[in-house]
Design a binder for these strands. Sequence first.
DNA 1: TCGCCTGTACCAACCGGTCGGTACATAATC
DNA 2: GATTATGTACCGACCGGTTGGTACAGGCGA
Lengths: 206, 206
Amino acid sequence: MRPTLKTEKPTRDHILAAASRLMALRGYRATSLVDVLRESGVGKGNFYYYFRSKEELGYAILERVVQGFVERVLEPCFSDSGAKPLDKVRCFLDRLLETQRQRNCVGGCPMGNLASELSDMHEGFRRRLAEIFTVWRERMTDTLREAQADGSLRSECDPASLAHFLVAALEGAILLTKVTKDIQIMETCVGELKSHLTLYAAVGRS
Amino acid sequence: MRPTLKTEKPTRDHILAAASRLMALRGYRATSLVDVLRESGVGKGNFYYYFRSKEELGYAILERVVQGFVERVLEPCFSDSGAKPLDKVRCFLDRLLETQRQRNCVGGCPMGNLASELSDMHEGFRRRLAEIFTVWRERMTDTLREAQADGSLRSECDPASLAHFLVAALEGAILLTKVTKDIQIMETCVGELKSHLTLYAAVGRS
DNA sequence: TCGCCTGTACCAACCGGTCGGTACATAATC
DNA sequence: GATTATGTACCGACCGGTTGGTACAGGCGA
């Protein structure tokens, strides 16, 4: 029984990793505790040492998924201070396309899946997910505002509306990619979204 | 017990209606047979007279949902022979917006919900759903081709790509509307999609 | 007689959560 | 120093309830 540092909880993280893998494919309800325990190799009593309930596990998974998304997708694209704002948005589109390609069109978007499954049935999840999408969208909105400030996006464009649309269209593209198992759908939609940006691009300043 | 025509099965339809209501909100897995029986008032033995399994019920519900969608949304918009092709597309966008408004942003899209929940776990459902989205998209593609033929859509537009994009963006918009419970998201996205159409519109011929 | 329908008992598997217990390290007490 | 108390981590059996499905006797009306 090894001593652990105050902030490290390997067993808890191990459970979370295993549960995240399962829930990404199966969704919340179809992921049972027994499955999680089997996948993680942890005993049931021990599970309840770390999580009070399946719901609490679900919330923790959601946080973990979001953190991973922010670190691996949002931050690399939007924190590149050398890039022009619209290039950041394109980088984001391309990054999501590559993610779906690497996953062979399996899994879709974990946040979108949970939103679809739980929004009408579980208010706690709906609220958290709505907040997550808000953060995602605001990050996009800020960048679009920068593009307006630097003149590459016209002033009649509403950054918030455009950001809403980009997020929604991406979620839909990911869902259709998942159901058809055809990466071309995602490619097509990313292409159309880039074209959509040209609607509002200031001439010669993209 | 009134005599019924050979093609009418009131009890079966009654079960389907009840199950559709439940499944539209809860999804497939979270809709139990006991719930369906309670909602429909039909006995269990009788249920199995009409359906061999929960899966068969699910397939029947899907067909029913699709039929309703075709009759109430697709056909009214796309079969209006007096309308211009691009007006048909706009009618479709508006109809979906009104549907979400009437439902107070509850439920989302039944087909999208099932696609999200089951595409990676149940090949039978994934195949059927992929086919449904294909039909939906082809209807849109045909209309966009008509728009090209009548000159209101430019020849460099690819109708199939645009149709893919429209369907995907709508699904995403519906999903975000469901998670945020804010009809404005849907309004915004429908507006952006109409703007997107202008990308390809021939000048003065919309 | 047949199709439709009822009610109900039963089944094994599943489900999230509870419980009594073990192992061990460390601190406190006598 | 030995004993006791405490806290952390862990375990699997057990619990009551739920689930989709099976089986079946029987009723009803055309």
